[in-house]
Amino acid sequence: MSRGWGVVSGFTSKRGPAGLEASERARFEAAVEPLLPRLHRFCLALCHSRQEAEDLLQDALVRAYLRRGDVHSGPSLAWLCGIARNQFLEHRRSVARRRSLLDSVLEGTTTALGSLFAGGVEQPDPEARLGASEEVERLWWCLRQLPEKFRLVVLLCDVEELGHEEAARVLGLPVGTVKSRHSRGRARLGALFAATPGRHADAVSEGGRP
C-alpha cells in the first residue's frame, strides 16, 4: 500500500517531518498492511472487548514500528502476533500488580473508571458496529468462552487458515501441542456454537467472560 492509514499518517502528516521518517513510516505501513486484518483479529481473540483489542493493536504496532530494525526480512505475522501477545501479557501482569482484588470488588460499585481505562472515552465505532453481523458476533462470543490456549489455536487454524506448523511458529509452541489444542478447541467451539443460537452482540462489545 502506498497511502498511509489515515489523514495524518504517512506523507500527509502535519506533525511528522516529510522526509526520512515519513518514508520509513510509509514503508512500514505498506509491509504491515497485508497482515493488519489478521493481527486485528488476533487482538480481538486475545481481548474481551473491541476497545481493549484496539488499544492492544495500537500498542503492538507502535512497538513493532520502533523495533522494525530487528527483523531484516520485514515484519511477519508470527513476529507481529508475538509482540501483541507479549504486550497483552505484560499489560495483564501490570494491571494485576497495581490492583488488589479488594480494589476490584469495591470498584464494582461504579463502571465510570473502568470504562475510561478500557477506552470508553471514545464513542463506539459505527462502522465496526454495522460491519459486525449477528453471526460473527455469535462466533466471537463462543470463541471467547474458550480458554485462551484453545482460542488462539482455533483462531489461527480455522479462521486464519494457517497450517499447524505456522500456527506453532506464531505461538511459539511445539507442533504437536498445536495439533492437540486445535482438535480439542474446535470440538469445544463446535459444541458451544451449536448450543448458542441467541444473540450475543452485547456480550462481545462489552466484554465476555473474564
Binding site: W5, G6, V8, S9, L36, L57, Q58, L61, V62, A128
Partner: peptide, 11 residues
C-alpha cells in the same frame, strides 16, 4: 477510524 488512529500513533 481504527486505521486512522493507528496512523496517528505511528506519527
Amino acid at each position: 477510524r481504527l486505521r486512522a488512529r493507528l496512523g496517528e500513533a505511528l506519527v
